[in-house]
Simulated assay, not measured.
Amino acid sequence: MKELHAMLFSGIKTLVGGVPVVHGAYKIKDNHVLTANSQSHHYIPATQVPVEMEKLITWYNDNKQILHPIKLSALFHHRFVAIHPFPDGNGRVGRLCMNYILMKKGYPPAIIRKENRWDYYTALEEADNNKPESFVHSSKKEQPWTFATRAS
């Protein structure tokens, strides 16, 4: 994931506001975003990121043979962005990870289309509130194949 971040930001030296980019490095300051409901959503504190990322990898390894690939990839993506380990690019890295998981299992990537962006954000918010089904369904809608048409 650090390598994906580094590749995404190669050639970029600063973020908005002149903040320098350290390619592939976890955040050193706490971060937050405004949700679709204009609420401030705070992510995992920077000091806890390495431990939370290890937990994420353990969760993935424990579930990769159990969960359906679409569900696994969506839940992984949500868990990743809930940690928000980087100062910027977390959604992009999360979507790359989601699609890596899908493609590794023989599925095409799930592309979140621009016209579905707010549905995507709303579904992420619902997953933040312990209702991940909406995000799994949202990810499934962006898949050319469905649970019923693909056996794995």
Rank of each mutant, 00 (worst) to 15 (best):
I111E: 14
G94V: 07
A74W: 09
N90D: 01
I112T: 13
P87D: 01
L102V: 10
N116A: 10
D119R: 13
H84K: 04
H78E: 09
R79D: 00
A82M: 06
M98D: 02
H78R: 02
P109M: 07
A82W: 07
L102W: 14
Y100T: 13
P108A: 13
Y121H: 13
R117F: 08
C97E: 08
F86M: 00
F86I: 03
R79G: 01
F80L: 11
A82K: 04
R79W: 02
R92Y: 04
G94Q: 13
V93R: 01
P108S: 15
R113A: 11
N116P: 02
Y100S: 10
A82I: 00
K105D: 13
G106E: 08
C97W: 06
F76T: 05
F80H: 09
A110W: 06
N116Y: 12
E115G: 05
I112Y: 02
Y120W: 14
P109L: 05
L75F: 03
Y120V: 13
V93E: 03
P109K: 04
V81N: 04
L75R: 08
A82R: 02
N116Q: 14
F86L: 01
K104F: 07
C97L: 14
Y121M: 15
F86W: 00
V93N: 01
N99K: 05
P85L: 05
Y121L: 15
L102F: 13
N90H: 03
F86R: 01
G91L: 10
R113M: 09
M103G: 08
A110V: 12
M98N: 09
L102K: 07
Y100R: 10
Y107F: 15
P87C: 00
N116T: 09
K104L: 09
M103I: 11
K105V: 00
K105I: 01
G89E: 06
H78K: 04
F80A: 08
G106K: 03
G106F: 04
I101V: 14
P108Q: 15
A74R: 10
G89V: 12
D88N: 14
Y120S: 14
W118C: 02
H78P: 03
G106Y: 06
H84V: 01
L75K: 06
P85R: 11
Y121T: 10
I112E: 07
